[in-house]
């Protein structure tokens, strides 16, 4: 489904991503791990269109999406959560999901708003509420996100990303700032949503226990290059990975 070929990005003298190839099949969960500065987030941003690569291609279902802006990639079925929260503080939890749904249903019409027809429909509310139920936010659906804690905000981002039924979910360090218990809960939730909805997932994560719980396959990056790829246990035993993490010979 997602095919990245020869992706390269340089910032000044720093080669952040150097000719990376990466594939994510439909319904597959892939973990992208590596030490700080490995180029994971830059690769992520290139896939999602927030950074323009210097070279290489990004294809979704065989179509080159490398020149599309972020919002168009999102409409093609890529969802994303962020390491640093990107929620809409003044909107209620439910409205976050309504915004996402309306975008994908092409439901924004000025004339409808001016005629007072802009409120969410019963079907939309049912869809939104089912996702809120799945992530455990039903009781806070009408609370402005500004009033929520970090853990709940991460769930809002996740719910907002999955409500549109994306084919590929890019999850960028979703456990960042969460404690061990919250991380475990989030890992279970991510995996169950990914399997239930049959979506592909690319997970960037430092917490290796979470990676092990969530992914089918792991890709390890170091200094902008892919140094290992395979199942979690295969990759963790690889010499290149130990060298990347521990500096071992």
């Amino acid at each position: 489904m997602l095919a990245v070929r020869g992706l390269t990005k340089q910032f000044g003298a720093t080669l952040a991503v150097a000719g990376v190839d990466l594939d994510v099949a439909a319904g597959e969960s892939v973990g992208l791990v590596g030490p700080n500065g490995a180029g994971k987030t830059t690769l992520f941003n290139c896939v999602f269109g927030q950074v323009r690569p210097d070279a290489g291609t990004v294809e979704l279902d065989g179509h080159d999406i490398g020149r599309l802006p972020t919002w168009r990639r999102a409409r093609l079925g890529i969802g994303r959560t962020y390491q640093r929260l990107e929620v809409f503080p003044e909107l209620a939890v439910r409205d976050h999901l309504v915004v996402a749904l309306r975008v994908h249903h092409r439901g924004a019409r000025l004339w409808r708003d001016l005629l007072g027809l802009g409120a969410p429909t019963r079907e939309e509310l049912a869809e939104v509420d089912s996702v809120l139920d799945a992530v455990g936010l039903s009781d806070r659906a009408d609370v402005p996100v500004a009033a929520l804690g970090l853990g709940a905000c991460r769930l809002v981002e996740l719910a907002r990303a999955v409500v549109t039924k994306p084919r590929l979910l890019l999850a960028d360090e979703p456990s960042s700032g969460l404690d061990e218990h919250e991380t475990g809960e989030l890992a279970r939730l991510l995996r169950s949503l990914q399997l239930a909805r049959g979506m592909g997932m690319l997970l960037v994560e430092h917490d290796l226990a979470m990676v092990e719980a969530v992914v089918d396959r792991v890709v390890v990056m170091d200094l902008g290059r892919v140094v290992a790829s395979g199942s979690f246990h295969e990759v963790m035993g690889a010499r290149a990975v130990r060298r990347a993490y521990l500096g071992a010979p």
Binding site: P69, W71, F88, L91, V98, V99, R102, A108, L114, R160
Partner: peptide, 20 residues
């Protein structure tokens, strides 16, 4: 309405709004 929600989302986080 919907346009207002989109604009409020844009005001809250341009990155987040583009991301959906």
């Amino acid at each position: 309405g919907t346009v207002g929600r989109f604009l409020t989302a844009m005001r809250g986080s341009e990155l987040g709004a583009a991301g959906v």
